Simulated scan of single mutants.
Amino acid sequence: MSIEMLAGEAAEGLRVADHIDTSQLPSLERRFTFGLELARRRVRPTFRRQVTGLAERLSLV
């Protein structure tokens, strides 16, 4: 997933990540880190639109 994100292929990275079964990973820490990274990648664009809209309403942009 990280490679696709770094290469600018966010949609492909998220699509691939949706099909990864982390339940078989031996490390709980790795499963948690993967889930956290995935959540962070998915949430960021949502907040960007909200912040941009707020900045426009406040005439900051």
Score class of each variant (00 low, 15 high):
1 M>N: 08
1 M>S: 11
3 I>G: 09
3 I>M: 05
4 E>C: 04
5 M>T: 03
5 M>C: 06
5 M>I: 10
7 A>N: 13
8 G>F: 00
8 G>N: 08
8 G>P: 06
8 G>L: 05
9 E>T: 10
10 A>N: 13
11 A>P: 01
11 A>C: 04
12 E>G: 06
13 G>H: 08
14 L>E: 09
14 L>F: 00
14 L>V: 11
15 R>T: 14
15 R>I: 07
15 R>W: 01
16 V>R: 12
16 V>W: 00
18 D>K: 10
19 H>Y: 08
19 H>F: 07
20 I>F: 00
20 I>Y: 00
21 D>N: 09
21 D>E: 09
22 T>H: 03
22 T>F: 01
22 T>R: 05
24 Q>E: 13
25 L>F: 03
26 P>L: 02
26 P>F: 02
27 S>T: 01
27 S>C: 05
27 S>N: 03
28 L>K: 14
28 L>I: 12
28 L>W: 01
28 L>C: 06
28 L>F: 03
29 E>R: 08
30 R>F: 10
30 R>K: 13
30 R>D: 15
32 F>N: 08
33 T>C: 00
33 T>V: 03
33 T>M: 00
35 G>T: 05
35 G>P: 04
35 G>M: 09
38 L>I: 04
38 L>F: 04
38 L>E: 07
39 A>C: 06
39 A>W: 07
40 R>E: 14
40 R>H: 06
40 R>C: 06
42 R>K: 12
42 R>S: 06
43 V>P: 02
44 R>D: 14
44 R>W: 10
44 R>M: 14
45 P>A: 04
45 P>H: 05
47 F>L: 14
47 F>N: 09
48 R>W: 10
48 R>E: 15
48 R>K: 13
49 R>G: 11
50 Q>P: 00
50 Q>H: 08
51 V>P: 00
51 V>G: 02
52 T>Q: 14
53 G>E: 15
53 G>P: 05
54 L>T: 14
54 L>H: 09
55 A>D: 12
56 E>Q: 10
58 L>V: 08
59 S>Y: 03
60 L>H: 03
60 L>T: 06
60 L>I: 11
61 V>E: 14
